[in-house]
Computed example of a mutant assay.
Amino acid sequence: MKYLHAMLRVHDLDATSRFFTDGLGLKQTRRSDHPAGRFTLVYFGAPENPEAEIELTYNWPPEDGSAPENYGSARNFGHLAFEVDDIYATCAHLQSMGITINRPPRDGWMAFVRTPDLISIELLQKGQPLPPQEPWASMPNTGTW
């Protein structure tokens, strides 16, 4: 058996793609548009192990102009986890992009953020936790993750 990918349904393909590429540094590995089925698939991999992918599925808006499908809050999915070289730098970068740090890395080890489609992302510090650092050490949780 070989693990292939995790699939996430998204409403805003551009914003979520930007989150994974510009925010987390993943690379788009491939993309395919399926006009007959009215959907687009975009795959992303981490530079250190691109074979384990995230698939974003974007279902095109209904042709009749009705509202797109509601996927809910995505809380039932759980989360995706990424190991990062510097959790503080990663969180600062995401914050500069307008991403809310829902669970700040107060412990220098773990943080949670959410994608534009509300998918929870766990960030874990590579190796040992970093020493506590402001503003993260005293930053409260925000919202849910």
Rank of each mutant, 00 (worst) to 15 (best):
F19V: 03
I119S: 05
L56I: 02
Y88Q: 00
L41S: 14
S96D: 04
E122D: 09
D12F: 05
Q128W: 08
G72E: 14
L56R: 02
G45K: 02
I101W: 01
Q133K: 10
S17V: 00
Y88H: 00
H34A: 12
S120Q: 08
I99K: 00
L130Q: 09
E55R: 02
L8N: 06
K27F: 14
A52I: 09
R103C: 08
T90V: 01
A92T: 02
R103T: 10
L123E: 02
Y3H: 05
F112A: 02
D12I: 06
G23P: 00
V10T: 06
G65Y: 07
R106A: 14
R75E: 15
T40H: 03
P61M: 13
I54F: 07
W136A: 02
Y71K: 04
Y71H: 11
A92W: 00
N59R: 12
I101N: 01
R38S: 15
S120N: 05
P68H: 15
V84H: 04
P129Q: 08
A36E: 14
D33M: 05
N141P: 01
D64W: 06
Q125S: 07
G72S: 14
W109T: 04
F77G: 04
N102R: 03
S120C: 12
N59S: 13
L118H: 12
Y71T: 09
L118T: 09
L80Y: 04
D86R: 01
M7C: 15
H34E: 15
F112Y: 05
N141D: 14
N70G: 12
F44M: 04
R9I: 13
D85K: 10
G72W: 11
R18C: 06
P62H: 12
H79N: 11
P116F: 07
N141V: 02
A81Y: 06
Q28G: 01
T57H: 09
R103Q: 10
S32D: 15
N102H: 07
L24C: 01
A15K: 10
S120E: 13
E83R: 09
M110H: 11
S66F: 07
F39L: 14
H79V: 09
T40C: 06
A15R: 08
P135Q: 04
A6T: 15
N76M: 11
A111C: 08
H5T: 04
P62M: 11
S96K: 00
K126T: 13
T142V: 13
P140E: 02
G127Q: 09
Q133G: 08
Y88G: 02
G72F: 11
M97R: 02
M1T: 10
P131W: 07
S73K: 12
E83Y: 11
H5G: 03
I121N: 01
A46C: 11
E69W: 09
W109A: 12
F39W: 10
Y43H: 10
F77C: 07
K126R: 15
P104L: 03
R114F: 05
K2P: 03
S73G: 15
M7T: 15
E63Y: 05
V42F: 01
W60S: 13
D107Y: 03
E53I: 01
I121T: 04
L4S: 09
F19Y: 03
